[in-house]
Computed example of a mutant assay.
Amino acid sequence: MKYTTEKESNYTNLEHMSVHELLVNINKEDQSVALAVQKSILQIEALTTVIVDRMKKGGRLFYIGAGTSGRLGILDASECPPTFGVPHDWVIGLIAGGDTAIRKAVEFAEDDTEQGWKDLSEYSINEKDVLVGIAASGTTPYVIGALKAANEAGLATGCIVCNVGSPVASEANYAVEVVVGPEFVTGSTRMKAGTAQKMVLNMITTATMIQLGRVKGNKMVDMQLSNNKLVARGVRMIVEETGATEHLAAELLEKYGSVRAAIAHYNN
């Protein structure tokens, strides 16, 4: 079976295109990604609903993948603590080959069907948690093995793939299949498939954190104040929410250490 992620590009003789032609055509292909994601909204909703339910009960969200897919999971997981002020162990991303593979490909790491569950076991993963496998092709052995073991252990399982009817999707309780079609460079799933995965991951964690009460109105009131830009943003949020002067807002933020706490103390 030849999956769409491996089909020939709609373009040929790429090396004869000008820089302008290359950029225009890549952008043309990218415009189809959001529409592909839109078609999978109900699948994304089903997976996100389960994640919210499990996390409200103390469960965690795990992402697992190889290559670009694994890196995207780690990226999304790493952005949750600074954005939403949650502990680092609420959302965890794992990649085939370990941390080395984040920057440099580890040969054949994705072909091990047992290593995924071994990696997850280091986190005492259990039936309260949710495991989401990320694999553009939907054929990655590392991910398939992890999902299969997770199902046997009673976890809720999901996946984000870019083909229909893949082995990864068949192992997931809640499969998200975003079919973006052939890549501009044949088989280069870091492109449209990667963009689709990034979009879905953002949707899942953002919706989940909002449901968990980590956003007020439309603001990141629990964000970490880790640099001057974010402190300034925090001050603006307090001013907008309370009507306090900028000077008072800055004092409240410094005193209470978070936007949420500063707003609460002002309103009291």
Rank of each mutant, 00 (worst) to 15 (best):
V176Y: 06
G257Q: 06
A34R: 12
S188F: 02
M237Y: 12
M220N: 02
V143A: 02
A196R: 01
A96M: 00
S78Y: 10
R71G: 10
S32Y: 05
S188D: 09
D112Y: 10
A250I: 05
T139F: 01
M1T: 12
V235C: 01
K255E: 15
A156Q: 14
N202S: 05
V37A: 04
E171D: 04
A109K: 00
M199N: 06
M220S: 01
V179R: 09
P141F: 00
P82G: 01
F184L: 13
A264F: 05
N267V: 11
A46Y: 11
V164M: 07
T245R: 06
M191W: 10
G154H: 12
E246Q: 15
L248K: 14
T100Q: 08
A105T: 14
T49V: 08
A135R: 08
G98R: 10
K229Y: 00
A169P: 06
E241Q: 15
G70T: 04
A77Q: 04
A250E: 08
V91I: 03
M55T: 03
G154F: 07
D112F: 06
I125L: 09
A66Y: 05
L22V: 07
E251T: 15
I125D: 09
N173E: 15
E29T: 12
G194E: 09
A196F: 02
A232Q: 15
E29Q: 12
K128G: 10
S166I: 02
R214G: 07
P87T: 13
A34C: 13
T195F: 08
T139H: 12
A261S: 08
P141M: 03
L42A: 08
I263A: 04
G65P: 03
Y174T: 02
L252H: 13
F84Q: 03
I95P: 02
P182R: 11
S258W: 06
K118H: 15
A172D: 04
